[in-house]
Design a protein around this nucleic acid. Sequence first.
DNA 1: TCCACGTGGTTACTTGCGGTAACAGCAGTC
DNA 2: GACTGCTGTTACCGCAAGTAACCACGTGGA
Lengths: 215, 215
Amino acid sequence: METGQREQQRTATERRRHELLEAADRVVLRDGPEASMNAIAAEAGITKPILYRHFGDKSGLYRALAKRHTDALLATLRTALDSPGDRRDRVEATLHAYLSAIETRPQVYRFLMHPAESAATDAEKGFDVGRHSVPLLRRMGEDLGDVIAERLDLGQDSRLTARVWGHGIVGMMYAAGDWWLGERPCSRDELVRSLAGLLWGRLGEADDRAGSRGL
Amino acid sequence: METGQREQQRTATERRRHELLEAADRVVLRDGPEASMNAIAAEAGITKPILYRHFGDKSGLYRALAKRHTDALLATLRTALDSPGDRRDRVEATLHAYLSAIETRPQVYRFLMHPAESAATDAEKGFDVGRHSVPLLRRMGEDLGDVIAERLDLGQDSRLTARVWGHGIVGMMYAAGDWWLGERPCSRDELVRSLAGLLWGRLGEADDRAGSRGL
DNA sequence: TCCACGTGGTTACTTGCGGTAACAGCAGTC
DNA sequence: GACTGCTGTTACCGCAAGTAACCACGTGGA
């Protein structure tokens, strides 16, 4: 009755990798993205070279870490995007989901958004400039663009418009969220409603202030 | 007939500082934000300690550098915001100004947006968390929020709504611009029109695609 | 039984960068 | 002439990324 020994063997290295990622996670969430490889190795109870065997270099480790959190966040947003209600309800639910995520785990958020990356480590230098790690913002923008494209009819150039909007809306959510997280100028609900109002065209409808030259 | 010697003396250090910034600029634009202090010093024809005397530390130098470019960009945007035409014309002109700026000098843009910062160098640690350098995105958001607040009447909570919109619109411009700069999926004009359409409420008005569950 | 070998682990090193200490030349000023 | 304040230097510290060389041990043939 072989208890799948060879299969355990096969996945042993993956499980080890997973454990190392858990340790790295703990350290990064405690010390921020500038956590040293030494510190991470120590947290995992081992020494540096093993980390390098598993992840190549620091940015490799960070990419693996970022991927986990990014996948989780994207899944959450997808769920919100499929919530019941009309279109505006869905949009507001998605904004809520995003803001709630960054609010409850700000360290994760900081790590994902400001990884202090570098990449372009000579190897791919001059090869694919600017294509460094396809970070969270891009992936969210692409995903939202896909959803918009498949659900909305935007006339001619519909696909392109959907992508533009995907990235634009994600950016709006990002910058407003980042600012809000730092200053906390209002409740989450107020923020969501203001942003939804913006997306629903209140900017075009608003009255000029008396005496101003108009925006 | 003193030729204002003491005044020249007074500004001599500032002029030196300016020269050093010029050199730093050249190196950063060539090597990216990870340019070393040694490299910058060499470009300026001097050695490291002088840089440190002038700017304190690396992030000090980077802040000085960023401030110059940020001020310039903000002035450009202000001008566009004051251009003739109706509100939508102004918004489109501003989007054009921004995209044109990042298009013509992408290295400057990358440097400003992804400075790979760190700050919190023990001194202010635990003091003013997250207030690290007030980067470009924040300043643009604040500025736009001010302009909106002074020119538009947004009902109750007008000031707050204006700030939210300022940051939101800037973020939209940023993320869409970043994506566009990397992929170049369309002309600048098409991008501007798509974004303006988004801001003018086309998202709320668009039809659901046949057979989809609706966004 | 012994040997080869992959695998998880270590110590000890190199390289390079941010940052600093200590010192030297050279104005102008009391 | 001594003092001050600027220019600049060489030479160093500390630390983090990344690597080389080596160790221990369980397994699987010959």
